[in-house]
């Protein structure tokens, strides 16, 4: 802790600046009307899933749909097509998911260095939830997701979404569901890395994974 006097000086300036705020007003008194929508539009679960897939694809994620039983074969095919040899599996990723893949499966225990991560071909993870209206995946460092660097340094990220219970409609629903894990490091991912810095035109692929593949899995893939 430094600048103890600056702390008091700044807080004192704030209080003097707010001399017009009535003394009896409490922090929550100023009205905030939350009449905005919790969900935009009415959709069946199937339509929500279509919206998620459409929005993910709109921002250049590659979207695949599969049932739980077909997941290992699909992962094996996607990794083979990519030519991936060294594939990272975070702690807690169901072991069966990669049983068909003819790759070296790396674990993050003990933790890999950034340079070791840099020579990984692909990383396979689950997620905490996915937001249909924005085409967003949220990772919360839970089981099967790992620490943040794992989905950042490798150039190819395969992310498995359980459609039965991990898809929400909207940003407000997502934040509500994430509130209990707010203290964990969270990463929201909407499509592969991109930039608008050159003439304000979007270009995919800068520092994060340049290829993002999303596997929307029906049924419960955990016991696989």
């Amino acid at each position: 802790m430094s600048g103890g006097t600056s702390r008091e000086r700044i807080l004192g300036r704030v209080r003097r600046a707010l001399a017009d705020v009535p003394r009896e007003e409490r922090p929550e008194d100023h009205p905030v009307v939350r009449d905005y929508l919790r969900v935009h539009g009415e959709r069946s679960p199937a339509e929500t899933l279509d919206l998620l897939a459409g929005n993910l694809a709109d921002y250049r994620a590659l979207v695949h749909r599969v049932d739980a039983a077909g997941l290992p074969a699909l992962l094996a095919r996607l990794l083979a097509e990519r030519g991936a040899h060294r594939v990272l599996a975070p702690a807690g990723l169901p072991r069966g998911w990669l049983r068909d893949a003819r790759v070296d499966v790396l674990s993050d225990t003990p933790a890999l260095t950034a340079r070791e991560l840099d020579v990984v071909d692909s990383v396979v993870t689950g997620c905490a939830l996915a937001i249909a209206e924005t085409g967003t995946l949220v990772l919360d460092a839970g089981p099967g997701q790992g620490r943040r660097a794992l989905t950042l340094v490798p150039d190819h990220h395969l992310c498995v979404v359980r459609t039965a219970d991990q898809v929400v409609d909207s940003v407000p629903q997502a934040l509500e569901r994430l509130a209990p894990v707010a203290a964990r490091p969270l990463t929201w991912v909407s499509g592969p890395s991109a930039t608008s810095d050159i003439e304000l035109d979007r270009v995919e692929g800068v520092h994060g994974p340049r290829t993002l593949e999303v596997l929307l899995v029906a049924g419960d893939p955990r016991p696989v």
Partner: peptide, 28 residues
Amino acid sequence: LQLLPRSSTAERMNPYTSMWTGTTDGDG
């Protein structure tokens, strides 16, 4: 998180949003 991406880069959501709270053992 609804107002900012649509107003700035005109996207439904920007590609990456990071949220962190203090420090986390073994992550970052």
